[in-house]
Design a protein around this nucleic acid. Structure first.
Lengths: 110, 110
DNA sequence: ATTATATATAAGCATATTATTATATACTTA
DNA sequence: TAAGTATATAATAATATGCTTATATATAAT
Protein backbone atom coordinates (compact mmCIF):
# COMPACT_ATOMS: atom_id res chain seq x y z
CA UNK A 1 0.00 0.00 0.00
CA UNK A 2 1.71 3.13 -1.21
CA UNK A 3 0.97 6.67 -0.19
CA UNK A 4 -0.75 7.08 -3.54
CA UNK A 5 -2.99 4.10 -2.82
CA UNK A 6 -3.82 5.44 0.61
CA UNK A 7 -4.60 8.88 -0.77
CA UNK A 8 -6.78 7.32 -3.48
CA UNK A 9 -8.70 5.40 -0.80
CA UNK A 10 -9.35 8.53 1.21
CA UNK A 11 -10.34 10.47 -1.90
CA UNK A 12 -12.77 7.70 -2.82
CA UNK A 13 -14.46 8.17 0.54
CA UNK A 14 -14.70 11.91 -0.02
CA UNK A 15 -15.87 11.51 -3.61
CA UNK A 16 -19.54 11.39 -2.78
CA UNK A 17 -21.78 14.43 -2.25
CA UNK A 18 -23.51 12.93 0.76
CA UNK A 19 -20.32 11.97 2.57
CA UNK A 20 -18.64 15.22 1.60
CA UNK A 21 -21.53 17.22 3.05
CA UNK A 22 -21.56 15.11 6.22
CA UNK A 23 -17.85 15.74 6.72
CA UNK A 24 -18.23 19.43 6.04
CA UNK A 25 -21.05 19.66 8.58
CA UNK A 26 -19.29 17.77 11.37
CA UNK A 27 -16.13 19.72 10.72
CA UNK A 28 -18.03 22.53 12.39
CA UNK A 29 -19.97 20.65 15.03
CA UNK A 30 -20.96 17.05 15.79
CA UNK A 31 -24.22 15.97 14.19
CA UNK A 32 -26.54 13.06 14.69
CA UNK A 33 -28.04 10.71 12.14
CA UNK A 34 -31.53 12.14 12.55
CA UNK A 35 -30.24 15.48 11.29
CA UNK A 36 -28.69 13.89 8.24
CA UNK A 37 -31.90 12.05 7.56
CA UNK A 38 -33.74 15.36 7.35
CA UNK A 39 -31.10 17.03 5.24
CA UNK A 40 -30.59 14.39 2.59
CA UNK A 41 -33.31 12.91 0.47
CA UNK A 42 -32.22 9.35 0.98
CA UNK A 43 -33.32 6.73 3.50
CA UNK A 44 -32.02 6.40 7.04
CA UNK A 45 -30.18 3.13 6.27
CA UNK A 46 -28.45 4.85 3.36
CA UNK A 47 -27.19 7.52 5.77
CA UNK A 48 -26.03 4.86 8.22
CA UNK A 49 -24.09 3.16 5.45
CA UNK A 50 -22.36 6.36 4.40
CA UNK A 51 -21.42 7.11 7.98
CA UNK A 52 -20.15 3.59 8.49
CA UNK A 53 -17.68 3.97 5.66
CA UNK A 54 -16.33 7.09 7.28
CA UNK A 55 -16.13 5.34 10.66
CA UNK A 56 -14.42 2.32 9.13
CA UNK A 57 -11.29 4.23 8.26
CA UNK A 58 -11.51 6.20 11.49
CA UNK A 59 -11.82 9.73 10.16
CA UNK A 60 -15.19 9.90 11.92
CA UNK A 61 -15.91 8.75 15.46
CA UNK A 62 -19.23 8.23 17.16
CA UNK A 63 -20.48 9.27 20.56
CA UNK A 64 -23.75 7.99 21.92
CA UNK A 65 -25.94 10.46 23.82
CA UNK A 66 -28.97 8.57 25.02
CA UNK A 67 -30.76 7.18 22.02
CA UNK A 68 -28.89 9.44 19.65
CA UNK A 69 -25.52 8.90 18.11
CA UNK A 70 -23.43 11.91 17.30
CA UNK A 71 -20.62 11.87 14.82
CA UNK A 72 -17.39 13.76 15.20
CA UNK A 73 -14.61 14.51 12.79
CA UNK A 74 -11.56 12.77 14.26
CA UNK A 75 -8.85 15.40 14.29
CA UNK A 76 -6.33 12.89 15.61
CA UNK A 77 -6.67 10.60 12.63
CA UNK A 78 -3.55 10.31 10.45
CA UNK A 79 -5.49 11.38 7.37
CA UNK A 80 -7.08 14.38 9.07
CA UNK A 81 -4.68 16.99 7.71
CA UNK A 82 -5.29 15.74 4.20
CA UNK A 83 -9.05 15.63 4.65
CA UNK A 84 -9.10 19.01 6.32
CA UNK A 85 -7.11 20.59 3.49
CA UNK A 86 -9.86 19.48 1.13
CA UNK A 87 -12.86 20.36 3.32
CA UNK A 88 -11.41 23.77 3.93
CA UNK A 89 -11.89 24.59 0.27
CA UNK A 90 -15.59 23.75 0.26
CA UNK A 91 -18.41 26.12 1.12
CA UNK A 92 -19.96 25.86 4.56
CA UNK A 93 -23.07 23.66 4.63
CA UNK A 94 -24.55 24.75 7.94
CA UNK A 95 -27.35 26.48 6.10
CA UNK A 96 -28.79 23.02 5.62
CA UNK A 97 -29.09 22.57 9.36
CA UNK A 98 -30.60 26.04 9.66
CA UNK A 99 -33.10 25.19 6.96
CA UNK A 100 -34.44 22.10 8.70
CA UNK A 101 -34.55 24.01 11.97
CA UNK A 102 -36.66 26.75 10.44
CA UNK A 103 -38.88 24.14 8.88
CA UNK A 104 -39.43 22.79 12.40
CA UNK A 105 -37.83 19.55 11.40
CA UNK A 106 -34.82 19.63 13.64
CA UNK A 107 -35.66 16.71 15.80
CA UNK A 108 -35.51 16.11 19.50
CA UNK A 109 -31.83 15.28 19.57
CA UNK A 110 -31.14 18.99 19.71
CA UNK B 1 -25.06 21.19 -9.52
CA UNK B 2 -23.71 22.57 -6.27
CA UNK B 3 -20.10 23.23 -5.39
CA UNK B 4 -20.24 20.09 -3.28
CA UNK B 5 -21.38 18.04 -6.26
CA UNK B 6 -18.66 19.52 -8.42
CA UNK B 7 -16.00 18.85 -5.81
CA UNK B 8 -17.27 15.28 -5.43
CA UNK B 9 -16.99 14.78 -9.19
CA UNK B 10 -13.42 15.99 -9.25
CA UNK B 11 -12.53 13.89 -6.22
CA UNK B 12 -14.02 10.86 -7.92
CA UNK B 13 -11.64 11.39 -10.82
CA UNK B 14 -8.70 11.66 -8.44
CA UNK B 15 -9.84 8.68 -6.38
CA UNK B 16 -7.96 6.11 -8.40
CA UNK B 17 -4.30 5.19 -7.95
CA UNK B 18 -3.61 5.10 -11.70
CA UNK B 19 -5.17 8.48 -12.41
CA UNK B 20 -3.66 10.00 -9.31
CA UNK B 21 -0.19 8.85 -10.35
CA UNK B 22 -0.72 10.10 -13.90
CA UNK B 23 -1.69 13.51 -12.60
CA UNK B 24 1.22 13.61 -10.21
CA UNK B 25 3.62 12.73 -13.03
CA UNK B 26 2.32 15.27 -15.51
CA UNK B 27 2.23 17.90 -12.83
CA UNK B 28 5.99 17.84 -13.26
CA UNK B 29 6.31 17.29 -16.99
CA UNK B 30 4.11 16.15 -19.87
CA UNK B 31 4.12 12.40 -20.42
CA UNK B 32 2.98 10.16 -23.22
CA UNK B 33 0.80 7.08 -23.12
CA UNK B 34 3.69 4.75 -23.91
CA UNK B 35 5.36 5.79 -20.66
CA UNK B 36 2.23 5.11 -18.66
CA UNK B 37 1.93 1.73 -20.32
CA UNK B 38 5.37 0.81 -19.02
CA UNK B 39 4.77 2.18 -15.55
CA UNK B 40 1.41 0.63 -14.80
CA UNK B 41 0.62 -3.03 -14.98
CA UNK B 42 -2.58 -2.59 -16.90
CA UNK B 43 -3.29 -2.70 -20.61
CA UNK B 44 -2.83 0.19 -23.03
CA UNK B 45 -6.59 0.60 -23.57
CA UNK B 46 -7.05 0.82 -19.81
CA UNK B 47 -4.56 3.69 -19.72
CA UNK B 48 -6.33 5.42 -22.60
CA UNK B 49 -9.60 5.16 -20.76
CA UNK B 50 -8.18 6.65 -17.59
CA UNK B 51 -6.67 9.50 -19.54
CA UNK B 52 -9.91 10.09 -21.39
CA UNK B 53 -11.74 10.62 -18.13
CA UNK B 54 -9.23 13.27 -17.19
CA UNK B 55 -9.49 14.90 -20.61
CA UNK B 56 -13.29 14.82 -20.47
CA UNK B 57 -13.47 17.31 -17.65
CA UNK B 58 -10.56 19.28 -19.10
CA UNK B 59 -8.04 19.05 -16.28
CA UNK B 60 -5.74 17.28 -18.74
CA UNK B 61 -5.05 18.36 -22.32
CA UNK B 62 -3.35 16.47 -25.08
CA UNK B 63 -0.70 17.50 -27.56
CA UNK B 64 0.24 15.30 -30.45
CA UNK B 65 3.92 15.04 -31.34
CA UNK B 66 4.19 12.83 -34.38
CA UNK B 67 2.80 9.46 -33.50
CA UNK B 68 2.93 10.18 -29.81
CA UNK B 69 0.38 11.96 -27.71
CA UNK B 70 1.61 13.87 -24.70
CA UNK B 71 -0.62 14.82 -21.82
CA UNK B 72 -0.39 18.04 -19.91
CA UNK B 73 -1.93 19.18 -16.68
CA UNK B 74 -4.18 22.09 -17.62
CA UNK B 75 -3.25 24.87 -15.24
CA UNK B 76 -5.94 27.10 -16.71
CA UNK B 77 -8.74 24.76 -15.83
CA UNK B 78 -11.18 26.06 -13.20
CA UNK B 79 -10.57 23.05 -10.98
CA UNK B 80 -6.78 23.27 -11.22
CA UNK B 81 -6.26 25.06 -7.89
CA UNK B 82 -8.29 22.41 -6.15
CA UNK B 83 -6.51 19.56 -7.91
CA UNK B 84 -3.13 21.12 -7.35
CA UNK B 85 -3.79 21.54 -3.64
CA UNK B 86 -4.32 17.80 -3.44
CA UNK B 87 -1.44 16.71 -5.69
CA UNK B 88 0.90 18.92 -3.79
CA UNK B 89 0.43 16.74 -0.74
CA UNK B 90 1.41 13.55 -2.52
CA UNK B 91 4.93 12.18 -2.90
CA UNK B 92 6.68 12.72 -6.21
CA UNK B 93 6.32 9.77 -8.58
CA UNK B 94 9.10 10.59 -11.04
CA UNK B 95 11.10 7.65 -9.72
CA UNK B 96 8.75 5.50 -11.75
CA UNK B 97 9.90 7.17 -14.94
CA UNK B 98 13.49 6.83 -13.81
CA UNK B 99 12.92 3.15 -13.13
CA UNK B 100 11.67 2.37 -16.62
CA UNK B 101 14.48 4.44 -18.08
CA UNK B 102 17.10 2.45 -16.19
CA UNK B 103 15.39 -0.74 -17.25
CA UNK B 104 15.86 0.44 -20.83
CA UNK B 105 12.12 0.50 -21.27
CA UNK B 106 11.66 4.19 -21.85
CA UNK B 107 10.46 4.06 -25.37
CA UNK B 108 11.27 6.04 -28.46
CA UNK B 109 8.97 8.93 -27.61
CA UNK B 110 11.74 10.29 -25.43
C1' DA C 1 -42.92 -5.13 30.65
C1' DT C 2 -44.53 -2.87 26.61
C1' DT C 3 -44.20 0.50 23.34
C1' DA C 4 -41.90 4.16 20.88
C1' DT C 5 -37.84 6.24 18.92
C1' DA C 6 -33.09 6.15 16.96
C1' DT C 7 -29.79 3.70 14.61
C1' DA C 8 -27.56 -0.49 12.45
C1' DT C 9 -27.43 -4.53 9.68
C1' DA C 10 -28.89 -7.79 5.94
C1' DA C 11 -30.48 -8.93 1.52
C1' DG C 12 -31.41 -7.69 -3.00
C1' DC C 13 -31.22 -4.83 -7.05
C1' DA C 14 -29.77 -1.25 -10.48
C1' DT C 15 -26.10 1.20 -12.03
C1' DA C 16 -21.24 2.55 -12.26
C1' DT C 17 -16.54 1.42 -12.60
C1' DT C 18 -12.55 -0.77 -14.33
C1' DA C 19 -10.50 -4.10 -16.52
C1' DT C 20 -9.90 -7.22 -20.81
C1' DT C 21 -9.72 -8.51 -25.88
C1' DA C 22 -10.54 -7.24 -30.50
C1' DT C 23 -10.44 -3.77 -33.74
C1' DA C 24 -10.07 0.92 -35.73
C1' DT C 25 -7.54 5.10 -36.56
C1' DA C 26 -3.41 8.17 -36.96
C1' DC C 27 1.05 8.87 -38.01
C1' DT C 28 5.85 7.39 -39.71
C1' DT C 29 8.97 5.20 -42.50
C1' DA C 30 10.74 1.95 -45.93
C1' DT D 1 1.64 2.40 -50.96
C1' DA D 2 2.52 -1.08 -47.56
C1' DA D 3 4.04 -2.14 -43.04
C1' DG D 4 5.05 -0.82 -38.37
C1' DT D 5 4.21 1.81 -34.15
C1' DA D 6 1.19 4.56 -31.08
C1' DT D 7 -3.18 5.50 -29.46
C1' DA D 8 -8.38 5.30 -29.32
C1' DT D 9 -12.75 3.05 -29.39
C1' DA D 10 -16.15 -0.82 -28.95
C1' DA D 11 -17.96 -4.72 -26.83
C1' DT D 12 -18.07 -7.33 -22.90
C1' DA D 13 -17.41 -9.16 -18.26
C1' DA D 14 -16.33 -8.90 -13.30
C1' DT D 15 -16.67 -6.28 -9.41
C1' DA D 16 -17.94 -2.23 -6.66
C1' DT D 17 -21.16 1.17 -5.23
C1' DG D 18 -25.28 3.11 -3.51
C1' DC D 19 -29.79 2.72 -3.00
C1' DT D 20 -34.20 0.31 -1.23
C1' DT D 21 -37.07 -2.57 1.99
C1' DA D 22 -37.24 -5.54 5.85
C1' DT D 23 -35.58 -6.52 10.18
C1' DA D 24 -32.62 -6.28 14.35
C1' DT D 25 -30.73 -3.81 18.24
C1' DA D 26 -30.28 -0.12 21.73
C1' DT D 27 -32.13 3.24 24.62
C1' DA D 28 -36.16 5.85 26.60
C1' DA D 29 -40.59 6.49 28.39
C1' DT D 30 -45.12 5.01 29.86
Amino acid sequence: MTQIDEAASVLKLLADPTRLTILKLIEKEPCCVCEFVEIFSISQPAISQHVRKLKDIGIVTEERRGQWVFFHLNKDHPTYPFVQSILQQLPDQSYKLDAIEEAGKRLSCE
